[in-house]
């Protein structure tokens, strides 16, 4: 493990997103200064369903388990999550 490999964030997916992407989490490299928008771009570059979901404005964002926006700054080892509008209660 070199230093570069530590500059990643963990991205988690829930519910419909997790099923459509067929994964519950991926590590995404970042280079600071980085924001959630950079992570979305990296994921969208994977194409097909990734590009589609990353372009969906209804997708909700959390960083370190608090609601966030595409402009929220990120640092290595942050936990980012993308999920559909919530439907509890």
């Amino acid at each position: 493990m070199n230093d570069q490999s530590h500059a990643t964030v963990t991205v988690r997916f829930f519910a419909r997103l997790r099923e459509q992407l067929d994964t519950d989490s991926v590590a995404v490299p970042i280079s600071e200064p980085a924001t959630v928008a950079d992570v979305l771009k990296t994921l969208a570059d994977r194409g097909s369903v990734w590009a589609e979901l990353c372009a969906d404005s209804r997708v909700m964002i959390a960083v370190n388990q608090a609601m966030a926006k595409t402009t929220t700054p990120l640092k290595p080892r942050d936990e980012v999550a993308f999920f559909p509008p919530v439907t509890g209660g």
Binding site: V86, T87, G88, G89
Partner: peptide, 14 residues
């Protein structure tokens, strides 16, 4: 609490 939970707590129903 109930109204806000419905739109902000991360639960999903299938």
């Amino acid at each position: 609490i109930m109204d806000a939970l419905k739109t902000s707590a991360p639960f999903w129903k299938k």
